[in-house]
């Protein structure tokens, strides 16, 4: 990329007109960031559907090399940017955190697409992590399912803008520049479900309480202000308080109502049918009253 001196010259020191194309007086942060933003190497690392659009973005029609994302590196040790391109599953988040820890500072994470940003269409899945930011710090989120190559490029340029605003003088902006070694992100453990080591104490406390009170582990009542549909949340989060399971291996989520999914599905259908009938009756009565008028 051509060095645009006028653009780089950000101080108030006047440069004589005849030297303007030869000399720039700038701050160290700005020069440093200018170098970093234009040589961001993404990691060659695809997760799901978004990876295909990422490849399209790298290929000739869109070509992110034009913006300084020069070349993708397959090893994390040569990469500056992790593009989390797709659904992050519990099984996959373990290697992802390991890869992140292997990337040298300064490093950035771009969450590409709905899944990496917050779970996306697969959020409710039992093996799906609701967004990369549950485990790693994310710098830029790109919405879309999948985002078009243009959207990804926009996200990458947004990341460059973020880098432009960082200052070496500020330790919060650039923690890697300070003294001491950076702490690696703790790698999650695949136990009965995925366990974030940072939550170990919390899980232990919850487990103790659940064992004493024989309540389910992991669900809770919403604060009153958030209970938008009270009847529903009460039904779905109610703990199966009655009777310890006879089977020692029984898990914490027996059906609260005692019904089976089959009968519950039938109940839901019946409810919907009645509601449809009620709506029909309401419409009929409105029509009748309108005709009377």
């Amino acid at each position: 990329m051509d060095l645009n001196l006028q653009e780089l010259n950000a101080t108030e020191f006047p440069v004589p007109a005849e030297l303007e194309s030869n000399i720039a007086i700038t701050s160290l942060s700005q020069l440093y960031n200018w170098g970093r933003r234009n040589s961001m190497w993404p990691m060659l690392f695809g997760l799901a559907c978004c990876a295909i659009e990422m490849i399209a973005t790298a290929s000739s029609r869109f070509d992110f090399s034009r913006f300084g994302f020069e070349v993708m590196r397959a090893t994390p040790r040569q990469a500056d940017l992790m593009i989390v391109s797709g659904t992050v599953t519990k099984k996959m988040v373990v290697p992802i955190v390991r890869l992140y820890n292997q990337m040298p500072e300064p490093k950035y994470v771009l969450a590409m697409g709905a899944c990496a940003s917050g779970g996306g269409p697969f959020k409710e899945g039992y093996n799906v992590v609701s967004g990369m930011d549950k485990y790693l710090p994310v710098d830029v989120y790109v919405p879309g399912c999948p985002p078009t190559p243009q959207a990804l490029l926009y996200g990458m340029i947004a990341l460059q803008r973020k880098i432009d605003g960082q200052s070496i003088a500020n330790g919060d902006d650039v923690p890697w520049y300070g003294a001491g070694s950076a702490e690696p992100t703790p790698v999650p453990v695949l136990g009965p479900d995925i366990i974030d080591p940072r939550q170990m104490d919390m899980i232990r406390r919850q487990a103790e309480r659940a064992a004493q009170e024989m309540t389910a582990l992991g669900t809770r009542e919403l604060p009153a202000a958030m209970q938008l549909a009270p009847a529903k949340t009460a039904a779905s989060t109610a703990a199966p308080a009655e009777a310890a399971p006879a089977n020692g291996n029984a898990l914490a989520y027996e059906l609260p109502t005692g019904g089976t999914p089959w009968t519950e599905a039938e109940d839901i259908r019946e409810k919907r049918r009645l509601r449809a009938l009620a709506r029909k009756a309401l419409r009929a009565s409105r029509r009748a009253s309108a005709e009377e008028e």
Binding site: K90, G119, K123, E124, G125, Y126, V128, V129, S130, K134, V189, L190, G191, P192, D193, I194, I195, D196, Q199, M200, M202, I203, R204, Q206, A207, A210, A211, M214, A216, L217, G218, T219, R220, L222, M226, L228, A229, T233, T237, G248, N249, L251, A252, Y253
Partner: peptide
């Protein structure tokens, strides 16, 4: 009405553990 599913989970994540989880012998097998 839409709420965030994380709000309903104590751990703020998409996780649920069996009631008799033994954290002292936890190993990634």
């Amino acid at each position: 009405h839409v709420h965030r599913a994380e709000e309903k989970n104590v751990f703020g994540k998409n996780v649920s553990y069996p009631r008799e989880i033994d954290l002292s012998r936890l190993m990634d097998t």
